[in-house]
Structure formats: structure tokens, C-alpha cells
Design a protein around this nucleic acid. Structure first.
Lengths: 207, 207
DNA sequence: AGTTTGGGTGTACGTCTGTACACCGAAACT
DNA sequence: AGTTTCGGTGTACAGACGTACACCCAAACT
């Protein structure tokens, strides 16, 4: 029943991360105090420093973790297969809904801190989303129908899609899992994706 | 040179609002202290209570004010005229860029507090955006080409457009006025709107 | 002219904050 | 077996916080 020292340490580190995630859900990272977290975890305030140099570093760890689950979402989206556009869209939205449901805390964290978090956190999140846009753009380039597309057109469509996905994720966060609202949002998103792809199909770049 | 009492009062009230707006730009409403605001304004902390019952009420006043400039933006967008879709899109984006530039603080406030603010603030903002979606939907219904559209289709397109506008506004906030980035965002938004409207033109509702 | 009103001041309080410091005890190393 | 390492504890302090209270004085009312 005895635990090794690294195991114990990792355990309370996780407890700190979880407590911070839970507490910041009520407000924001910037309104999070070291003492609150310590009390929630059940350790004395000064013990916090055994794991993080400061609250800011805790925030950085949290954003790293949250971006990890964002990357997981993107990977799953990329592996969504289907014969036609319709089934790909349906599968993608299903994945999005599932992932947001599954990692509610992380996506909520990203939504909150994207603009309200400390500058380094904001930048990290912005960078993560930017990366997602670029990767989607290269994915789109390998799709049939976009052979003649310019770089900027690909970037435009990609940014449009990613923007809609982010907006959808934010909407999903305020809807309870399995709620009618959630289904409505999913349906709406499917329709939006279809509309965007129809627009893309008939797209002819100008200038 | 003597000021009437109501004038003086209104003046410091404004000073408080401005100081709160400026200070919260660095972090968030929830991380804003009464004493900070008082110091910034140049009054003693307890004098704050002559104007607001609490910091929360200050936040409510700020969100009301910010939503006012959002409504102004929407009104201006609605009055954007043009002969064809192209010119309407161009005009709308120009208005958006101008307004975000002009009321940077208010739009920044909305972006930050939309998900990170106190619950009442969040709800007020969400309600404002929802209202904008509904109004755009009824506007779209009066446009030629949407005669056969169902209620949900109109709502879908409206939500898509509003979402893109919100995303654009958020992007614009991080770009300096007149910067190359700002122009790039404006161009991208114009293309996105065109793409969406092309999609809408070829849209045929299913089921 | 005399009185009331109300924005702003100054002091004072209890609470919460981050963090420095000395210390403990058991796991981990030699 | 003896020593070191290190996560966790307890005390302590200076500063910032919200806010209660008594006070001031000029504009506004009578």
C-alpha cells in the first residue's frame, strides 16, 4: 500500500491541476489564488511551491494540457472517414460534440482564457488555433475539387471552417450534454458546414 | 467655471467607467478591485459607493454600454446599402473594421467577458448576440432569393454570418489599426462572406 | 439667510493574499 | 546502517482587499 515518492508527487500535482481547472471554471485564471487551490487540494499553501514556481506556471501547464485535448480533437477529426461530403460532415460534428462533452473542462478553459487569460496563455491558445487553420488548409489542398485553389483561398476556407468549429464548441459548452439544445446546435452546425462546402464548390477566386 | 452638482457627479461617474474599462483591458472584470479603480480615478475608495453599489453593478453598467455600441454597429450594418451582393459585403466589412477601430475598448470588453465574465454579464452578452442573429434572420427573409427558405434555414445562415462577424471582430482586436494584418483580415472576411453567400444561393434545404 | 443635501475625505477594522523561514519524517540513496 | 533528499507542515509578516463610520464643505433648496 506504500506509494513511491514520484507517484505521490504526481498524484498531488494532478490534484492541483484538477482543482485549478474546477475553481477557474467559476471565474478565470487571473482570479485564481494560490491559497484557494491549496485549500481545495488539501495541502498547506506553501506546499504549492513544491510543484509550481508560481500560479502563472500552473496556468501555463493547464493551457498546455487543454491544447493537448484540442490536438486530440483535431486528430480525430482528420481521421473521420466517409464516402461523400455528407457523411464526412456528419462524422465530424459527431466527433466534435463527443469531444466537447468528454473534455468539457478543457474546452471551457480554452474558451474562457482565449481572450481573458494572461498574455502568455492567450498567445499560446491563439497559436494553437492558428496551427489548426494551417493544417486544415493543407488537408483541404489534398481534397478533390481544390486543385486550382490559391493559397489564400485555401486559408480563407480553412479559417472559415475553424471559426465555425470554435463557435460551435463555445455554443456546445453552454448546452447540457444530451440536451435538446445540444442536438439543435449539432444540426445547425451540420447545415452550416454543408452551406460552406456548397459555397466552396462553386467558388471561383477573383482578381 | 463653477460646475453644477449633477455635472460633477456625471463626470466622475464617467471617469470611473473609463478607468474600469482601461484597467479590465489588462485582465478581466472579475480581477478588478474597487481600490484599483478608485486610485486610477483619483478618488478615495469609499467615494466609489456614491456612484455604484458594488463592483458588480459597475460591470453591469459597462456591459450595457458595450452592448449599446454593438447595437450601433448592427444598425450601421443594416443601413449599409449597395446594388449587388459584392458592394454590400464590401460596405459591411468596412463598417465592421471602422467600428471595431473606433470602439476598441468596448468590443474588447465584450470579447473578454463573453465567457470569462460574471454570470449576469455573460448572459447579457449572449442575449445581445442572440438578438442580433434573430434580427439578421428576419432581414435575410426580406431579401430576394430567400423566398422559399424555411425558418431554420434562415436561422442557420444568420448564425453562420454572425459567428463569422464575431470571429472577425475578435481577430481585428488583436491587429493594430491600419496594420497589414487588419487589411488581411478584412480581405479574408470579404472572401468568407462571399463564399457563404454563394453557398446560400445554391442552398436547397433537405428533409 | 439658514438649512438640507450629497460628493468626497480619513481612519479603522477584519479578512485574504503571496511568500519567507525553520522544521518534520519517511522514502531513497550510499 | 547512516545520510541525504524532498513533499508537506506551521508560523509569521507585509500588503491589498471590501467596507463601516464619522466627518467636511460647497452647491442646492426654503
Amino acid at each position: 500500500m506504500t506509494e513511491t515518492r514520484v507517484e505521490r508527487k504526481e498524484k498531488t500535482r494532478r490534484a492541483i491541476l484538477d482543482a485549478a481547472l474546477a475553481l477557474s471554471a467559476d471565474t478565470t485564471l487571473v482570479a485564481l489564488s494560490l491559497r484557494q487551490v491549496a485549500k481545495e487540494v488539501g495541502i498547506v499553501p506553501t506546499a504549492f511551491y513544491r510543484h509550481f514556481p508560481s500560479i502563472d506556471d500552473l496556468g501555463l501547464a493547464l493551457v498546455e494540457e487543454s491544447l493537448d485535448t484540442l490536438r486530440t480533437l483535431l486528430r480525430e477529426l482528420r481521421h473521420t472517414v466517409g464516402d461523400d461530403a455528407r457523411s464526412i460532415i456528419d462524422g465530424s460534428v459527431t466527433v466534435l460534440v463527443d469531444q466537447v462533452r468528454l473534455h468539457h473542462a478543457h474546452f471551457g478553459f480554452i474558451a474562457r482564457e482565449r481572450f481573458a487569460g494572461p498574455p502568455p496563455v492567450r498567445e499560446t491558445i491563439a497559436h494553437g488555433i492558428e496551427l489548426a487553420e494551417r493544417e486544415l488548409a493543407t488537408d483541404l489542398a489534398h481534397l478533390p475539387g481544390t486543385d486550382q485553389w490559391s493559397e489564400v483561398d485555401l486559408q480563407t476556407l480553412s479559417s472559415l471552417i475553424v471559426g465555425a468549429m470554435v463557435t460551435t464548441a463555445e455554443r456546445l459548452l453552454t448546452a447540457g450534454p444530451g440536451s435538446p439544445a445540444e442536438r439543435r446546435i449539432a444540426d445547425s452546425t451540420r447545415a452550416q458546414l454543408r452551406m460552406m462546402l456548397i459555397g466552396a464548390k462553386h467558388w471561383r477566386s477573383e482578381r
